[in-house]
Amino acid sequence: MNFDLDQEHRDLADAARDFLSATASPAAARAMLDDGATVRPGRAELVKSGFATITIPEHAGGGGGSVLDLAVVAEQAGRLLAGPSLVTFARAAVLLAGDDRLADLAGGDRSVAVVDHDGPVLDAVGADTFLALRDGALVCGPGTVTAREPIDPTRGLGDVTLGDTEELVPDAAERWLHGERVGRTILAAEGLGAAARVLEIGVAYAKERYAFGRAIGSYQAVKHLLVDAYVEVEQLRSLVWWAAWAADHAPDELPLASAAAKAAAATTLEQAAEAVIQVHGGIGFTWEHDAHLYWRRSKVDRFLLGDDVSAYDEVARLAVTR
């Protein structure tokens, strides 16, 4: 058994962190809320770096890598609240497999968003090509985007009205589902990074903040709050790796693994962000502190690709029919 990242993945994570941290940060996310700055690193830079297109085959101009490779990068993106989401690229790579548009995406000539039925669309802002499932067929076309007032502006949510679409795949339900599952895996990886990072911020503060003559992290009430978040973060990490591995090697396990990862990510990030705000006391709910930027991410991500309730329901449905 070797259920761990190998050196290659660790190097990939380091490289992704180096690239992403040059522009993306909680401060950049705050600037989007403050004065409408654009998301960092942004679509063009992400594509140019090659990180966003890892799962696109080499012949289409991508990296020809695995879902696990992308998950490793997505964790780093989550830590820095980077955007647009790698979920969008992961799903597009599945949906456009075998289509010329995939090379356009990898070449930076197209900005894609994937349109779900249930409300404002992830990374709709700035997209020019929209993929959707209509009557069981995969369709593609232009659309008009109405940006909505953001809770988390890095998610680029907007209402999409599709223009004239072209049918790409007639019987695409399975492919769409697979794209959702890969997307849930990458979403959970971004959630993992965000949760792990916000927890680090909380742990660091609990070591340096003194009350009643001691570091507050010495008190069980504070310590145990952080430990519970830590346990969830590490279990989420395991589920993300499992789901990514399943996407690459064990398609039979992907439905359960991706639903479990999605559900755990929603719960874990929400609880970690909430706990860390509480640990900080007054400074924790100020605009200038980073905690609320992770909290905002959690309050949006829980609804993406199906909400946590539907993901837990799916886990249970799969469990009782196994």
Partner: peptide, 10 residues
Amino acid sequence: LGKAYVAVLG
């Protein structure tokens, strides 16, 4: 069941 099952898998 879903919540407990996810915890067990984790």
